[in-house]
Amino acid sequence: MTPLTHHEILTLVGPFARDEWRVDLAATDRQNRCVVFEPRTHDNPEDPSSLSLTEHLQLENPARGRFFLRRTLTEASGLSATLEVTGEDPASVYAQCAHVPPHDHFRHQAGTLAAISYALEYRRPAPNAEPGWRRRFTLGEACVRGRRLQFDARTVPGLPAKLTLDWHPRGDIHLPGDLLAVQGWAWRPLQLMPGGWKATVKLSRREPERSQEAEERFLATVAHLEQTLSQPPARFHERFKWQRWRVVFQRSLAIQGMLAILSAIPILYWGDFGQDGQVPLWTTGVPPVMLLAIFLSWSREVPVMEIPPLPKPLLANAWEQGPTTEGVSD
Rank of each mutant, 00 (worst) to 15 (best):
V35I: 15
V35N: 00
V36G: 02
F37I: 02
E38T: 15
E38Y: 12
P39N: 06
H42A: 08
H42N: 06
N44F: 04
P45A: 06
E46G: 02
E46C: 00
D47K: 06
D47M: 06
P48H: 05
S49R: 03
S50Q: 08
L53R: 00
T54D: 00
T54V: 13
E55T: 05
H56M: 04
H56S: 11
Q58S: 14
L59M: 01
E60I: 02
P62Y: 14
P62K: 09
P62N: 08
A63Y: 06
A63V: 05
R64D: 12
R64Q: 15
G65C: 02
R66G: 01
R66H: 10
F67P: 03
F68T: 11
R70Y: 00
T72W: 01
A76D: 03
A76G: 00
S77N: 09
S77M: 07
S77F: 10
G78R: 06
L79Q: 10
L79A: 08
S80E: 07
T82S: 14
L83P: 04
L83I: 10
L83H: 09
V85G: 05
V85D: 01
V85N: 05
G87P: 00
P90T: 03
P90I: 09
A91K: 06
A91D: 13
S92W: 02
V93F: 10
Y94W: 14
Y94N: 01
Q96H: 11
Q96N: 14
C97H: 15
A98D: 12
H99M: 14
V100S: 03
P102R: 12
F106D: 07
R107G: 03
R107W: 11
H108T: 14
H108K: 07
Q109N: 05
T112V: 15
L113E: 08
A114W: 10
S117H: 01
Y118P: 01
L120F: 06
E121T: 13
Y122Q: 05
Y122V: 04
R124P: 01
A126N: 01
N128D: 14
A129W: 10
A129F: 02
E130G: 02
P131T: 01
G132I: 03
W133M: 08
W133R: 08
R134P: 00
R135Y: 04
R135A: 10
F137C: 02
F137Q: 00
T138V: 13
L139F: 10
L139A: 03
L139G: 04
L139C: 04
R145S: 15
G146P: 07
G146I: 04
R148I: 03
R148S: 06
R148A: 12
L149N: 05
Q150V: 15
Q150Y: 00
F151E: 04
D152N: 15
D152W: 05
R154S: 14
R154L: 07
R154K: 13
V156M: 14
P160A: 13
A161S: 14
L163I: 15
L165M: 14
D166W: 00
W167A: 15
W167K: 09
H168R: 08
